[in-house]
């Protein structure tokens, strides 16, 4: 489903070749596909049919669409595609965190849209595990994002130990 100029990367920064996911327009037939991605609107309208078919199902969430409506069906949804139409729109970060921490969603959460190296660090922490990256030098971009910080302050979906959990020894008396 990745655009030609995009590269699809997994959570380790490896290129995924042969992306199996096919994005469907709301009126396109589903027949003949192994894995389809539909809009939330289509999912809600055709839920029972879509869930009964033997393809793998993904749902695309736009920034103004939260994951709540999918909650009862998340066990039968394989992937959530979270759209970032513009770089500065950070709503998708909340979507991913809610999916991981509230609904314990274990399928793929893919960041699609205007994704560049500067968001990658945050996307990884928020629980994304697939990225349609626009940087040409995707390997360097991913490495840059992954290697930038060895310390984080918050617990997040990447399970990196926050600084407070790594701090072993309280400061000695009399220090201020």
């Amino acid at each position: 489903m990745a655009q030609p100029e995009m590269r699809l990367l997994d959570r380790h920064g490896r290129i995924v070749s042969g992306d199996e996911w096919v994005g469907l327009a709301d009126d396109a037939p589903t027949a003949g596909h192994m894995a389809v991605v539909v809009s939330l609107k289509r999912f809600l309208a055709e839920r029972d049919v879509l869930l009964s078919r033997d393809f793998r199902l993904g749902v695309r969430l736009d920034p103004n669409e939260g994951p709540e409506a999918l909650a009862p069906d998340l066990e039968r949804i394989s992937a959530i595609f979270v759209a970032f139409p513009v770089f500065r729109d950070g709503r998708g970060f909340s979507t991913a965190r809610i999916l991981r921490s509230r609904y314990r969603f274990s399928g793929e959460i893919r960041a699609v849209g205007d994704i560049a190296r500067d968001q990658l660090f945050f996307l990884l922490r928020a629980g994304f595990d697939a990225f349609e990256l626009r940087d040409r030098d995707h390997e360097a971009a991913f490495k840059w994002a992954q290697d930038s910080f060895s310390v984080v302050y918050q617990p997040a979906a990447d399970h990196a130990a926050p600084a407070f959990a790594r701090r072993a020894h309280p400061p000695s008396e009399g220090q201020f």
């Binding site: 950070g90 968001q119 302050y153």
Partner: peptide
């Protein structure tokens, strides 16, 4: 600081 959800 560098909050995973609230940096955008």
């Amino acid at each position: 600081t560098l909050h995973p959800e609230f940096s955008f």
